[in-house]
């Protein structure tokens, strides 16, 4: 009796699952930060899941009909993405927040790549990295950061419990 019951149960669950939407279960973003010694800038690329980004934009600005990565994408989407990221992603050095320049974003169905540039980066000073992207919508959000500064490679991640990371060269 048990066997029959299990078979029916498993089959039903499989069918239900296959027919469901494809929402990913983990909430992660990845940022790559590379120091450009010639311009003394930090070149930043942030990968965000497209559906997460739409949720966050709607939470912050109301539903403007984003349709990211589709032909119907909101023409002003870029501006909203920039305004969303600006207060949530920052680097501080020598008690000063680095100034920030939005380069643009690349919209794909699964992920959006956002490009930012920060000026007057001091490659010898410790840095304080703040990344609180999506913390207001997901409890389990993890924001990964990879730093590539001359010969040094570092990685760190922020969570709701640890919203900032200090990155130093002598540690």
């Amino acid at each position: 009796m048990w066997k029959g019951f299990i078979k029916i149960g498993v089959t039903a669950i499989l069918l239900m699952t296959v027919s469901m939407s494809n929402a990913h279960t983990f909430h992660v973003s990845v940022a790559q930060m590379k120091y450009n010694a010639q311009n003394r800038t930090l070149e930043i690329a942030i990968k965000l899941f497209t559906d997460d980004l739409e949720d966050a934009l709607t939470t912050s600005f109301g539903n403007q009909g984003w349709h990211l990565a589709t032909p119907r994408q909101l023409p002003a989407a870029d501006k909203y993405v920039r305004n969303y990221l600006k207060p949530r992603f920052a680097i501080k050095q020598n008690n000063r927040t680095l100034s920030w320049n939005w380069i643009g974003a690349e919209y794909n169905m699964d992920a959006v790549w956002c490009y930012i540039e920060m000026y007057d980066f001091d490659h010898e000073a410790d840095l304080e990295w703040k990344n609180i992207i999506f913390f207001e919508i997901f409890n389990d959000q993890k924001n990964i950061g990879h730093f590539d500064i001359l010969d040094h490679d570092f990685s760190a991640y922020t969570t709701r419990k640890k919203r900032k990371q200090i990155i130093g060269y002598n540690k």
């Binding site: 389990d140 993890k142 990964i144 990879h146 490679d153 990685s155 991640y157």
Partner: peptide
């Protein structure tokens, strides 16, 4: 942290994290 250290920590936390037990 080195990236090796970070992925190691993320692996440990993925099992021990009470968000997904």
């Amino acid at each position: 942290m080195s990236s090796f250290g970070m992925y190691f920590e993320l692996g440990v936390m993925h099992i021990l994290d009470l968000e997904g037990i």
